[in-house]
């Protein structure tokens, strides 16, 4: 089975998110006064062959650990969907 895996990577709380700050400022300047905060992250899609959703999740998690995420500055979340 192939699983469509979506990984969202964002800067940890406490790590200066300059891009997010800039986006928030631009939007606020454009009149979106209800905007509270903006954070900018990365979105990675992976297609993984695995026996089960759990296995696909574990595999994706390992990939995050190995390469995709720098745990010093980034957090992430994984969503898996069967295709």
């Amino acid at each position: 089975m192939t699983f469509h895996t979506r990984i969202l990577i964002y800067l940890k709380e406490g790590v200066l998110d300059t891009q997010g700050k800039t986006v928030a400022k631009s939007l606020t300047d454009s009149g979106y006064s209800n905007l509270r905060n903006a954070r900018v992250g990365k979105y990675i899609q992976l297609w993984i062959d695995a026996d089960s959703r759990e296995k696909a999740y574990e595999e994706a998690d390992r990939m995050c650990d190995d390469l995709l995420v720098n745990e010093l500055i980034e957090d992430y979340s994984i969503e898996v969907e069967e295709q």
């Binding site: 800067l11 790590v15 200066l16 300059t18 891009q19 800039t22 720098n70 010093l72 500055i73």
Partner: peptide, 10 residues
């Protein structure tokens, strides 16, 4: 140790 983020000027 450490990591690099985008410059403050972006």
């Amino acid at each position: 140790p450490g990591a690099m983020l985008a410059n403050k000027t972006l």
